[in-house]
Write a protein that binds this DNA or RNA. Structure first.
Lengths: 163, 163
DNA sequence: AGTGAAACACATACGTC
DNA sequence: GACGTATGTGTTTCACT
C-alpha cells in the first residue's frame, strides 16, 4: 500500500506539468504530452486512485493573511511516551498558527513550522501554547528569513519499482 | 505589496473550502457559502490578483514515488556570505531530492527537507551534495518519523488589517 | 490501454439590479 | 458588489479500435 507504483513516461510528464500548475486542463496536458485528453483523464484518475496524487492544494501567501513572520520551533517532549505525544500533536495541529508538524529522530522530538503576525504574537504562542504545557521540556525558536519550494518531485533516477 | 489584505467572511469561507480541495467548482463553493457562483468567481479572481492565492499545487505521496524516507538536514555554511550562499541555495534547490529550503536564524544557517529512496541514498546525498562542498561546514541529519499538515491557514483572530 | 465524438457540466463575461 | 443568464470551453463518457 505504501509501496511505490510503476509510472511510465506519460505519467511522469503529467505529474511534472501538474506540479507546476495543478489547474492545467486535460486538453493542454494532452497537447503537451502527445496523447488524447480522455487518456490524460484516465491517467490522472488512476494516479489519484493509486495514491500518488493525494490532493490539489491551494498555495497561499501567509504575509497577505496578516502572518508576515514564520518560524521553526524545535520541541522536546518529556517523557516521550505515546500517552503524552498523541494529545500533544493533536493540540499543536489544531493551532491556527501551525503549518506543519514533524516527528523527528535526534535531540528534538518535534519540529513545528508556524506563521504568526509578528514577534509579540510568536512570543505569546511559544509561552502560552508550548512552554506552558507540562510535557514540553524545551523549545528552541528559529526564525525563517526566507524559504524556497523546490522543483517537481520525481522518482529516483535509476527508475521505477514494483507495484 | 506584501501587506495584508482585507478579507470578509465570504473570502475566508472560500479560502477554507479551497484549502481542503482546490478543485471545488464555483457551483459547489456557491452552494456551501450561500452566494452565487459568479460571485465566487469574482471573489476568487480578486484573491488571486491580490496575491493571497499564489497558485494551485499538486500534493504527491513521496513514498509512492519511491522516496520512502524523508529527513531534515541542518546545514552550516561558512563563511555565510552572499557570494557563497546564493549559489549554494540554487544548487540545493536543483536537487531532485530537495523539497523545501529554509534560510534561518540560529546556529544552523539552512534547513533542507529532503525525500530519498532509503538510507544508502540519504548517505550518498549528504556526502556527495553537502559535506563535499567547501562552503558547507557542518550537516546534521534528522530523520522524519512522521509528518502532519495542519488545518487551513487563516488570518489571526483579532481579524483583518489594512489593504 | 488509447481514441474521437457526443453529451454534459463548468467557467467566464456581461447586462441588470 | 452581487446576481442571473448566455455562451464558449473543458470534462467526462462511451462505443470502437
Amino acid at each position: 500500500m505504501a509501496d511505490s507504483v510503476v509510472l511510465d513516461t506519460v505519467d511522469l510528464q503529467l505529474l511534472g506539468l501538474l506540479q507546476n500548475d495543478a489547474r492545467t486542463t486535460y486538453r493542454d496536458l494532452a497537447a503537451q504530452v502527445g496523447v488524447a485528453p480522455s487518456t490524460c483523464l484516465d491517467r490522472v484518475t488512476r494516479l489519484r486512485r493509486s495514491g500518488v496524487i493525494l490532493g490539489h492544494r491551494l498555495q497561499l501567501d501567509p504575509a497577505k493573511l496578516g502572518r508576515g513572520l514564520q518560524a521553526l520551533l524545535l520541541v522536546q517532549v518529556r517523557p516521550h511516551r505515546r500517552e503524552l505525544v498523541g494529545p500533544f500533536v493533536e493540540r499543536i495541529r489544531a493551532l491556527s498558527e501551525a503549518l506543519t508538524v514533524f516527528h523527528l529522530t535526534g535531540p528534538d522530538d518535534y519540529l513545528v513550522h508556524v506563521a504568526v503576525a509578528d514577534m509579540a504574537d510568536l512570543q505569546r504562542l511559544v509561552l502560552d501554547e508550548f512552554t506552558a504545557r507540562r510535557e514540553v521540556a524545551r523549545v528552541e525558536t528559529r526564525l525563517i528569513f526566507q524559504q524556497w519550494e523546490c522543483g517537481p518531485l520525481l522518482p529516483p533516477s535509476p527508475s521505477a519499482q514494483s507495484e
